[in-house]
Amino acid sequence: MTLTIARPRSSRREWLIPASLLVLTAIPVLAGALRLTSLASGADVTPDNARFFALPLPVILHIVGATVYCGLGAFQFVPSLRQRHPRYHGLAGRVLVPAGLVAAASGLWMTTVYDLPAADGGKLPLIRWVFGLVMIAALVLGFAAVLRRDFATHRAWMMRAYAIGLGAGTQVLTTVPWMIATGGLDTTSKTIAMTAGWVINLAVAEIIIRRSPAPGGARRGSAPARMMHP
């Protein structure tokens, strides 16, 4: 007689979170992969991609950093993965923090040095700088918190950083419907749509931080393997 132990429903459902995050980031990751392919294959230079061919390093760093950060970061939201593999969370974090810093810093670099399209003008470069700097600050503060074993603060800042890093995925949802409805984006509408993506993500992160404390508590000095944070 074989005894079959059913897998707990909560264990199955917890994978819905990383799956949803991976779906959200799929389009930006695919777009980044196509950009890298065009750079590597020597595609035709057009007004839309000339800046990338003229200075490819920042966009390459941004695509690689953001892909690693958003993709690997999604799995930090799986409690059972940390429970079964206690060292995984910390090892992944050692990859995620540098990847996130590279993604944010290269994004600021591109905003500064590239000759951006007209729709990317106005206040959008300033807004990109604000969110880029906030992401960098959140990663630094989160890293500093874990060094002093303040895991509750670490969790909060890392979730905020991930929310900003995942902005490109949400911005697909805020820009594409607008483009379909109006036929395109001007400077003002693109600024609003892009800003909305970051704001929505941060708002969701703040709700989770305040309403869903880590299992077992996220007190100073508590075991990081039990934490619910990216």
Rank of each mutant, 00 (worst) to 15 (best):
V95P: 14
V130C: 08
P98L: 07
R226Q: 13
G221Q: 06
T170P: 11
L39E: 10
P230T: 08
I209N: 11
R7L: 14
H89E: 01
H62A: 07
D44G: 13
I27P: 03
G71K: 08
R9A: 14
F143Q: 15
I192V: 15
D186C: 08
A103I: 05
L126G: 15
F75S: 09
T2K: 09
D44Q: 10
N201R: 06
G216I: 05
R210H: 11
S212A: 09
L166C: 13
P98F: 04
G32L: 02
A214E: 03
I60A: 13
D48L: 14
S10G: 11
R220L: 03
I207K: 10
I192K: 07
G142A: 04
A54T: 07
G42Q: 07
N201A: 05
A54V: 00
T111P: 13
M179A: 13
M110C: 09
A118N: 04
N201Q: 06
G142P: 12
H229N: 09
P215C: 12
F75M: 09
L57D: 14
V95G: 11
A196Q: 02
H229A: 15
A225K: 13
T182C: 08
I164G: 10
G184K: 03
Q83E: 13
G32M: 04
H85S: 12
T187E: 15
F52E: 12
I200G: 13
A168E: 05
L173K: 05
S222P: 14
V45E: 01
F131M: 12
A33Q: 01
L61Q: 12
M158V: 06
L141R: 15
G216E: 03
P224L: 07
L16G: 13
F52K: 03
A119Y: 04
G216W: 00
I136T: 07
A145V: 02
T170I: 01
A103K: 03
G216D: 06
A104Q: 01
M158K: 03
P117L: 05
